[in-house]
Structures are given as C-alpha cells and as structure tokens.
Simulated assay, not measured.
Amino acid sequence: MNTVLHKATTRGHANHGWLDTNHTFSFAHYYDPTRMHFGVLRVLNDDFVDGGKGFGTHPHDNMEIISIPLHGDLEHKDSMGNTAVIKQNDVQIMSAGTGIYHSEYNKNKDQKVNFLQIWVFPKEKNIQPRYEQKTFKPEDRVNKLQEVVSPLKTSEGVWINQDAWFHLGNLKKDFQTEYTIKQKNNGVYIFVVEGDVTINGQVLNKRDGFGIWNTDKLSITANSDAEVLLMEVPMN
C-alpha cells in the first residue's frame, strides 16, 4: 500500500480579493513539482467567491471538470448554450473534449459561494463536449457513501469520460465502513470537507487530503461528525 498525505495547511493559497482559493495540486501561480496530480486527478481547488463575482468566459479542452458546491449558488453559462445554477447537493460535470468556453459566477450578491473545482484527465480525447448536472438527496449519504460520479451510464451519478468514481459521505461520529476499489490499479484520494476521520490508520482533519493506492480496500472511521469526498481514479 502506498499513501500520500496533504495537510490542509500545506495547500497552495491565493487571495484575489473576490476569490479566496486553496490548491491541493499545482495550479496557476502555485507550483510544487511533488504535487502535480494524483493519478489522473489533476486539480482540486477549494474556492470561495464573493457575492456577484466569478470567473469570466474562458476556454477548456480535453479535461473532465467537476464542480461541487458546498455552500451557496453558482451560475454557469457555456458555449453549448447551457445556462444553469448549481447549489449545495448538486454535482456538475463538463467534458471539455474538443473545446468549450464557459463562465461561473456567484448567483447571489449577499453571500459567498464555496465550491470544489476538480479536474480529471479524460480517458478518451477530443470527444464532443458535453454538460450534465444532477441533484442528490443528502439523506442518501448519511452513514453511507453516495455515488455521485461514475463511468457507467447506468449509474445514479453524473457520467465521466474516465474510469473514475466519486462518492460523498456524511458520517456520524464513531461510524465505521469500508470502501472497496472498483477497478484494478486505481487509487483513491480522500478529501475531508468537514470533521475528523481515520482512513487506514491515518488521522485526517478538515480540508486534509489523503491518497492511497496499491490496495484493494479502505477502512473509514468517523472520529467526529464528518463529511468526506472519495475520488477513485486510475493511477496512470
């Protein structure tokens, strides 16, 4: 079993006034050659955007881009004609494929929006760009791992152009469970949204990240009420 620990305080940080952001992996002006990616997981940004502010129209290509709002509402517009608002309990994905332009703004002027911006290298390049979002029932992740992203089109989760699975869990204190790796040679990156957990003996706190590979399963214990995001991804 191999592991890598990224404590919350070691993340790259930038405050642009309207945007306060933490980068788990190298991004923009934050560069650390030891923290370029975890397998095909390339970006994990924890973004706080001021009311009415946001990211103007900008391009992407050949990347799977997942947005998970934690608090507040995020308005999305793109060159495919999609206009949508994503909120807490929603998960949005864009397959940028051959190329797409989009913008993201805080829908509300009176409160911040906090969302996770995640980039995953695609399995197949230059596909037709696509957009999808779904709302998930929060009660379905209480002391459970709720699948929210999947490569299987029959899944409840949003579809991703990669052999990757994401799960959200809202775990009550002292709850214990296991997660079994779905595909050989995949690893799992755990991001602790809130609270404290122990994964395979490693104690993790709020906003810590922990990657595990070369193992078949993980043991998970909630040391307090906790929210976690598990991202299973190919390691090469």
Rank of each mutant, 00 (worst) to 15 (best):
D225L: 04
N106I: 05
G52K: 11
Q117V: 05
P234H: 11
A226F: 07
K172S: 09
V142D: 01
S224G: 06
H167W: 15
N170G: 01
R141Y: 01
Q146W: 01
N214G: 14
L171G: 04
V158M: 05
G169F: 03
A96Y: 04
F38R: 00
D46G: 07
P129R: 13
N205M: 11
D47H: 10
V43H: 09
T3K: 12
N82K: 11
L168W: 07
E75K: 15
L19F: 06
G97D: 07
S26E: 01
I199F: 06
V192W: 02
V193K: 02
V197C: 02
D208Q: 00
N45Q: 06
N186K: 05
G56R: 12
N223M: 05
L230W: 01
V158R: 09
I160Y: 08
H58V: 12
A164E: 11
K206W: 02
F25I: 10
A222N: 09
F166V: 12
L229F: 10
E132M: 13
H76F: 07
N200M: 03
T221H: 05
A226C: 07
E147N: 15
N223C: 01
I93H: 12
I86F: 10
D20G: 00
E194C: 00
Q146R: 09
F25W: 06
K53N: 03
Q146A: 03
T21C: 02
T154R: 10
T177A: 05
H167N: 15
N2C: 10
K77L: 14
S219H: 14
H167V: 08
